[in-house]
Nucleic acid binder design. Structure first.
Length: 753
DNA sequence: ACCTCAAACATTTTT
DNA sequence: TGTTTGAGGT
């Protein structure tokens, strides 16, 4: 037997060595599902299947990358580099780059990210003069996205009475018009949003049978990871592609289906049998990841769900220690508890930072945790905030690149037409937009054909003309020169480089550094690509599809991980903290209405718990700071669903001493807060926070002419002082930075003698 | 056209 | 609490 097959158990091996025909692998958490997928690909390659004929669809780019490198280690990179591997979005965008002209899109189409989509919708709502409180951009975008993911086009939408009625009830009577306009504007801008990447692929395969045949024959073997989280349109595409050879292998776990808000349909996995009647299926039930306690506890959680494929996850691993459940008084206490416990374990068990993960339901919860980790000097990395490519300065520069590649890209144009300042303001832009809409062209087309328009005055025309000359130069450079040369030129000539260089505030400096980092990244890209594919266009291909997990660098190696439970799917850590286990938080208030969404929250909790290998810590806070207010909260029902045997409950975790006094201990007898009580609580807690800050006595000492030190601006001289007590302000001159006005209460200035 | 400041506003999860 | 929007001034 081949060496790589030896470390598989019997079921895993059967799945790996299944050669032809539909295959369904139901894999419990931690049962080695990625390993099966990887090994199966290696097996196919060893059987003589051409790597060109294998398509592997993963849930994240990172997963694809990791799988590819594992395969590469065994079969070598000449073979592995020819495998088609990636997310649905990235693989299909690649196909569209070849074929898009057939469906009337240029090959250099732009991919609009969520921010672009929202901005476009915002413009449309404004142009239609609609009430922005009824037509909320985020909501509209979500609705359009969900329609698209269910393959309901504008035409199908207007025929659908039920959907129309929903919008009537919500008073969004103009929704259809917005939907149509959105589609048209995307098309005019030669742009596709995330959902279009799927829809257009489907259309392509539907409209052109010869193309369908081509890709069916190309992808003779299709493997899909995390199948429980595919949505309807993805399902349709796969069904089409696989219908010829039926060599489709899906791997998934219905108990870990957590993306229904994105259109994921748990029925896809349940219906696999109907679509492929001659299927084979294997169940992987042995968990290799977690302690027996964690595995059993997870089982006791998921059994509360009604919808599921029956399976029993078991393990031979040691029992391990009990799961710690801790109640804390506030979110800050919770943060301290987590940070202290991490330090403690690091010392006693010789664990490293990268062994720890802190998981939460919503991104907003990260702040209290970050603060306490910082105070304890524990390095951490945080996912799900802004990814590198979504930072303002990066998006600004990328917008120039996008225009150089596709000048019709309206969102990119709007972003930078007046940044840096060139005196082309809002009213000019509105005018242009109006003309463009009435001529059914893009804004760019309108600008380069200005002479025919008399609505715009001469001065503005000159400015617009200069702008178009600039962009035309960028278009030429991006076509003829390598990406690094072109991008550097664009950064300089656009004025962006200077603009950021001249901003010497700490934020400005870091923005400038980010731009340099981006340019370095492009340099690196050029050095590692062939001459025919080292253009800006090649670099930009799927930048919009990258997430912060994909842009991880070496600096992030030994750090504690902070992320949402959603983002943690597929990962594992020795020590896991699941925080904020409170009613309305987890399960989230938005999901507590229907049985289905509650079951999904429970699956999410199941995912969180099963990330842990050695030890699991669950915590909840009895007050939480939200919207600038303290809100009382109660323990999550999910904690009570875990079998008591596996839990060890604490008011405070004993391994460290809490600094706060008993008076803040949550009072069980008064779960309902009245306003007065809340105010008292506020005051008390505020006091506690102030103690940890610099006290006022120090700020009162600061006088005119003194030299002071600021944490980020460095050393400066006090020029003026105004105000009293908490309102005491100072104007300070910092060398190389300039004057800053600051409230002494917050500024934490240190007096330098 | 652009800047500044105060008031209103918002909060699930993401390729 | 942090961010976005709108009014009003330059």
């Amino acid at each position: 037997m081949q060496k790589y097959l030896l470390d598989l158990n019997q079921e895993q091996r059967k799945a790996v060595m299944h050669k032809d025909g539909p295959l369904m692998v139901i894999a419990g958490a931690g049962s080695g599902k990625t390993r099966v997928l990887t090994h199966r690909i290696i097996y196919l390659l060893n059987e003589g299947i051409n790597p060109f004929n294998i398509l592997a669809l993963t849930f994240t780019n990172k997963a694809a990358k990791e799988m590819r490198s594992r395969i590469e280690n065994i079969v070598g990179d000449t073979v592995s580099k020819n495998l088609w591997m990636g997310t649905f979005h990235s693989v299909f965008s690649k196909i569209l780059r070849f074929e898009s002209e057939k469906i009337n899109y240029p090959k250099n189409f732009t991919i609009y990210d969520t921010e672009d989509s929202k901005n476009l919708i915002k413009s449309i709502i404004k142009e239609f003069n609609l009430d922005k409180d009824i037509y909320k951009t985020g909501l509209i975008r979500n609705r359009i996205s969900s329609l698209k993911n269910n393959f309901i086009s504008y035409n199908k939408y207007i025929e659908n009475n039920e959907l129309n009625l929903q919008d009537q009830i919500a008073k969004r009577t103009e929704f259809a018009r917005i939907y149509l306009a959105y589609q048209n504007r995307c098309h005019k801008a030669s742009a596709m949003d995330f959902d279009d990447l799927l829809i257009k692929t489907y259309e392509l395969l539907e409209l052109f049978p010869d193309l369908l045949k081509k890709y069916q024959e190309k992808f003779k073997y299709i493997l899909i990871d995390e199948y429980q989280d595919t949505n309807h349109i993805q399902y349709l595409i796969v069904k089409k592609l696989a219908s010829k050879f039926m060599n489709i292998c899906i791997v998934g776990d219905d108990a870990q289906s957590i993306y229904s808000f994105r259109g994921a349909n748990i029925k896809n996995i349940l219906n696999f049998k109907n679509d492929y009647p001659n299927y084979t299926s294997y169940k992987l039930e042995q968990n290799y990841r977690s302690s027996a306690t964690i595995v059993e506890a997870a089982n006791s959680i998921i059994k509360n769900n009604e919808q599921q494929i029956h399976k029993t996850v078991w393990t031979e691993n040691q029992k391990g220690e009990k799961i710690i459940v801790v109640k804390t008084t506030s979110d800050n206490e919770e943060g301290k508890l987590v940070a202290n416990t991490i330090s403690d374990i690091k010392m006693r068990k010789q664990a490293h930072n990268q062994d720890f993960a802190i998981l939460y339901r919503t991104n907003a919860q990260s702040r209290a945790l970050e603060e306490s980790l910082r105070k304890r000097n524990i390095p951490y990395k945080i996912y799900g905030g802004l990814s590198f490519y979504q930072r303002k300065e990066i998006k600004d520069l990328l917008a120039y690149f996008r225009l150089a590649i596709n000048p019709n890209d309206e969102e990119a144009l709007k972003r930078i037409i007046n940044y840096p300042r060139r005196g082309i303001g809002l009213s000019t832009l509105q005018n242009l937009s109006l003309i463009a809409n009435s001529n059914n062209t893009s804004i760019w087309e309108t600008i380069i054909n200005l002479d025919e328009n008399s609505q715009i005055n001469k001065g503005t025309k000159k400015k617009l003309n200069d702008f178009s000359i600039l962009i035309n130069e960028f278009i030429l450079k991006s076509k003829n020169k390598d990406a690094y040369y072109a991008s550097e030129e664009i950064a300089k000539q656009s004025g962006l480089f200077n603009e950021l260089y001249n901003d010497k505030s700490p934020e400005g400096v870091s923005r400038f550094e980010n731009i340099q980092e981006l340019l370095n990244g492009i340099k690196n890209f050029v050095e590692h690509s062939e001459e025919e594919s080292n253009k800006l266009e090649d670099f930009m291909q799927d930048v919009a599809l990258l997430t912060d997990q994909d842009t991880e660098n070496d600096k992030d190696f030994n750090k504690v991980t902070l992320m949402t439970v959603h983002a943690a799917k597929g990962l594992e850590f020795p020590y896991v903290f699941v925080v904020g286990l409170e009613e309305n938080m987890f399960p989230n208030i938005m999901s507590s209405e229907s049985q289905d969404s509650l079951e999904e929250e429970r699956r999410l909790f199941y995912v969180a718990v099963t990330r842990a290998a050695k030890r699991l810590f669950l915590s909840f806070a009895s007050t939480r700071f939200k919207w600038g207010q303290f809100i009382d909260s109660e323990k999550s029902r999910f904690i009570d669903e875990i079998d008591e045997r596996y839990l060890e409950k604490h008011e405070h975790y004993p391994s460290f001493e809490l600094k706060t006094s008993k008076k803040f201990v949550y009072n069980k007898k008064q779960p309902i807060v009245n306003k007065l009580q809340l105010n008292i609580k506020n005051r008390k807690l505020k006091k506690v926070t102030n103690i940890s800050n610099n006290d006022f006595s120090d700020t009162a000492k600061i006088q005119n002419g003194m030299n002071v030190k600021h944490s980020s601006f460095g050393i400066g001289k006090v020029i003026t002082i105004s105000g009293e007590g908490a309102n005491r302000k100072a104007t300070v001159f910092f060398k190389g930075i300039g004057q800053k006005n600051m409230l002494l209460k917050f500024a934490k200035l240190e007096i330098i003698k």
